[in-house]
């Protein structure tokens, strides 16, 4: 099956400094890929390249013919000088019927926000509105750029739960940049750990044990991941992995050693 988007050897330079180095990535059907990485790792730039906002200096990005993308930006600062209701904003520009609008409104549970001015919505409501808007016109791929960055923890949990439901019900692909890996661990199929280049990539549980991951995110994240693994253990699949991780989790004080081991790399 042809991938929805295929990026081959993408490199971007700004002021002759590399922003992305030789990144290759395929987004397939029904994929859920989460891109993680520290600030300045080039995550947003990679999204820009994948969505065709920015032409990479080297390599190329090929979207599948006629690919429909729904985009959820990091945040929307609704300016109170622009008088617009939420309903109007959702249907702005897109050719949609009232029925379609109603169906995404119901799907994302934003009925109460519809007649309010966009500028009075809370951060959580706004992100749901943006998701609803992205779902119009039945996209094959949802692209989200740190969608829960500015929400409190309840808001984050709520948003990711909604996203998980949308992903399963709609059978679409999701490509997301997120810092909240511990929250999306159970939804995401693939994790791409980025620091200008692809540090590691694969299933979340595999990536979480990768020394590159630990060196980028440190002990705290490893702790969080360990607690996730316990949850996962309770669900009872993939025992081998879990036991292997238990060892790792209990000897967490050794993490800095492994971090040090690869510390001589340029991104330490």
């Amino acid at each position: 099956m042809k991938p929805l988007i295929s990026a081959k050897h993408v490199s971007v330079y700004r002021d002759s400094q590399p922003v992305l180095k030789d990144v290759s990535l395929d987004i397939g059907e029904n994929d859920f890929t989460t891109i993680i990485g520290p600030n300045g790792a080039g995550k947003s730039m990679l999204l820009k390249c994948l969505m065709g906002f920015y032409a990479p200096d080297k390599g190329h990005v090929t979207p599948r013919e006629g690919l429909k993308i729904g985009y959820v930006p990091q945040r929307l600062t609704a300016d109170p000088t622009i008088p617009i209701t939420t309903r109007r904003f959702i249907s702005l520009r897109k050719k949609v019927t009232k029925k379609e609008v109603l169906s995404v409104v119901e799907e994302t549970g934003i009925e109460a926000s519809l007649e309010k001015p966009l500028s009075v919505l809370s951060g959580g409501e706004l992100q749901r509105v943006l998701l609803a808007r992205a779902l119009l016109d039945s996209p094959e791929l949802l692209v989200l750029d740190e969608p829960a960055q500015n929400l409190d923890i309840t808001g984050q949990l709520g948003f990711y739960k909604l996203l998980d439901r949308v992903y399963h019900e709609r059978n679409l692909s999701v490509l997301m940049v997120s810092h909240d890996l511990h929250l999306v661990m159970s939804s995401t199929k693939n994790v791409l750990c980025l620091f200008k280049e692809v540090c590691c990539m694969g299933e979340p549980r595999v990536v979480a044990r990768d020394p590159e991951f630990v060196s980028l995110f440190g002990d705290d994240m490893a702790q969080l991941m360990a607690s996730y693994q316990h949850h996962d253990h309770n669900h009872g699949h993939d025992h081998d992995h879990d036991h292997a991780y238990h060892e790792h989790g209990h000897t967490i004080t050794q993490m800095p050693v492994s971090a040090q081991k690869i510390g001589h790399k340029d991104h330490a």
Binding site: M51, F53, P73, D79, L92, R93
Partner: peptide
């Protein structure tokens, strides 16, 4: 209007 509300959202569309 869309570009005024969110530039990247407009680009994506």
């Amino acid at each position: 209007l869309l570009m005024t509300i969110h530039e990247d959202l407009a680009k994506a569309e």
